[in-house]
Simulated assay, not measured.
Amino acid sequence: MDARPAPDKAARVLEALADIGAASTLDDWARRACRHLLDIVPGVSSTYTEVNTATGRAAAVVHPDPGLAWFAQWRPFFGEHAHENPIVAHIEATGDGSVATWLDRDPERRFERTALYRGFYVPNGIRSQIGFALATEPGEFVGFAVNRDGGHFAVGERTTLTLLRLHLLNLYRLVAAREAGVSGLSDARAGALGLTARQTDVVRLVVAGRTNDQIAAELGISAGTVRKHLEAVFGMLGVASRAALVARALGTDAARLR
């Protein structure tokens, strides 16, 4: 059985990555990612959690947005019992943030007897979850989950989330650099990659989240010429997507994903 995403699903993933990568801030990035996750893998909600002890940044996003009153009601209880989630417990114990469900990490279903499951998830209509974390620096946690009111997650859905996970960290770094006002591609880095002056111009605009048409307008060239420059750069750098190109430009390494 072929577990690869269907062509239409693959196209939706590419569209999602392009939209997520166009975010101007990390908060915007998280909201876009949650919205697309729930569109690609249906459920009752999708969630995002980020903690960075170095910068003091902490963020939580739920889609659809349940409102401030919901967060005020549930945040203290969830924060106290979050460690009971078997996906979170596994990540904390092993550093393995790969895509998994509650049943994957807790086949004996002991989690269903915990305060977190009975006191938070069940009242909110959640009885199954699939989630993953991005491999970040020590002191950082960036994780996503899709929640359902029951049932299992198909092999194809797991494959799709694994594909998304491979690119989300690079997009996180890209948007963080954009939010901080960092260009992302220095002259020295461009030289080390062997880019020409025009290729450098094009790649910098890709890093900035521009589309081919927008790049063409800014540089005063045709969209076809932009495509030719990108085809040459893709071949030279051995990458096959804009997300992978951004990773090379920023000097990040997808192999850090565990």
Rank of each mutant, 00 (worst) to 15 (best):
G235R: 10
R31T: 14
G125Q: 07
G251K: 02
G184V: 06
R75P: 01
T114P: 04
G220E: 06
V226E: 00
A135P: 03
Y117I: 01
A93L: 09
R256E: 08
T252E: 07
D39Q: 04
G21A: 02
N52R: 15
V226G: 00
D106R: 07
I20D: 00
R189G: 08
N85M: 08
G220L: 06
E15V: 11
R198N: 13
V62L: 11
T47N: 15
C34P: 02
L237C: 04
R148P: 05
A223S: 12
P66F: 09
A60P: 00
G43T: 11
T196L: 13
F132M: 14
D149S: 14
S183F: 01
A6Q: 10
R31K: 14
V146G: 04
Y121F: 15
D27T: 11
E231L: 14
R258C: 02
R173N: 15
T25V: 09
L164A: 05
A192R: 15
T53N: 02
R105E: 02
R127I: 07
L14S: 10
G125L: 09
N170I: 10
R57W: 06
V226Y: 00
G56M: 07
H83P: 00
V182L: 11
T160G: 09
T55M: 00
T101F: 11
V62R: 09
A192L: 14
R118C: 06
G143F: 00
H90D: 15
R189E: 12
S128P: 03
T49H: 08
A197M: 05
L205P: 05
H63A: 15
S45E: 14
A3Q: 05
G119I: 04
V88Y: 03
R105L: 08
I221N: 01
R178Y: 05
A10Q: 13
I87A: 09
V51I: 11
L103W: 03
G209N: 08
L171I: 10
E92R: 10
A208F: 01
A135H: 08
A59K: 07
T94A: 08
A16M: 02
F78W: 09
R178F: 07
G238N: 03
H167S: 13
S46K: 05
L103R: 13
L205A: 10
E15A: 15
G150Q: 11
A255D: 05
G43N: 05
V182E: 15
D2Y: 00
E231K: 14
A60L: 08
V246N: 01
A6S: 15
I126H: 02
R204N: 10
E108F: 03
A176F: 02
M1T: 06
T159D: 12
L103K: 11
Y172A: 04
I20L: 00
T225R: 13
D65W: 07
A16I: 06
W29I: 04
R110L: 12
L219A: 06
L103F: 06
W70P: 10
L37M: 09
A33G: 06
H36N: 12
